[in-house]
Design a protein around this nucleic acid. Structure first.
Lengths: 144, 144
DNA sequence: GTAGGTATGTCAGTTTCCTGACATGCACGA
DNA sequence: TCGTGCATGTCAGGAAACTGACATACCTAC
């Protein structure tokens, strides 16, 4: 079992990196007019679907450290796109929510990202698409 | 067509990011004993399969800018893992090749990464695996 | 032959994310 | 009650990637 990775054209890892990079680049390009980075958009999207999340919970959902999320939140709060509770209802966690401006820009951004995803998977049928999502989730699950 | 992304559990983009992140984390952990970053390993792996590539070609294969690849190559060359031609046979491109030490560490690293990939796709049959790779390649293709 | 376009190597500066560290608030058991 | 452990928020420093810029080498068209 000391075999190597083998031809990159048949490596799952390489294909995964290739697809993820292409998606990130396309999202960056699409979101640039809104002056949103992919991380910032991800933060808004998660917050739109799960209002009241703390910075640490957001960080886990967006796959960054809570330190990075902290800086991200400062920027978005400065732009008036979200608001953080001034004091913690319980524990230290500060619930965060989108402002009206945040919801507005999220609608635009989410439409842009949805269009990118549709372009990426235009050749997939609904069943193949669902299977791909499930397979990717299984990959992540197997490594955690 | 101004619909948003929708539930993240059913979003291809989110699943892709999740899987790619899990893979990157697992690779970082596996490669740490060799004191190799994922980018450094990727560089060695590509170079092992396609000797003589230039820095710019390597950069494209590894999905980084040629500036980043330049810094990467300096580090790997300093460690004696690869050697770059002193002058260009034609044009400005400097062919790069692995040294004996580079080939040796690549064998170790490639085995580690292959093990991670196997762990990630342990629940997949050969056909499902090939289909996943093809689907990911199609995703990348559709965005480029 | 010369000008324009493209590809490469390299330097510099900036951004973004990370690791490390510390303080605070809560839960649990001795 | 008190100490231990854990999660969170935050500050500081460093590593890794990026963009912008410039010089060089080739290739094409005029």
């Amino acid at each position: 079992m000391t075999q190597g990775v083998g031809d990159l054209d048949h490596s799952v890892g390489y294909a995964l990196k290739q697809a993820a990079t292409a998606l990130r680049v396309a999202m960056e390009a699409g979101l640039r007019p809104l002056e949103l980075t992919v991380s910032q958009y991800s933060c808004l999207e998660v917050l739109g679907q799960r209002p009241g999340l703390s910075a640490a919970e957001l960080a886990r959902a967006v796959f960054v450290t809570r330190q990075s999320m902290h800086a991200l939140l400062l920027g978005l709060e400065e732009r008036g796109l979200l608001a953080r509770a001034a004091s913690a209802p319980q524990g230290r966690a500060l619930p965060t929510e989108l402002t009206e401006a945040g919801r507005a820009i999220l609608i635009e951004a989410s439409a842009i990202v949805a269009a990118v995803e549709r372009r990426m998977t235009a050749s997939f049928g609904p069943e193949a698409l669902r299977r791909l999502v499930d397979d990717l989730a299984a990959c992540a699950e197997a490594l955690n």
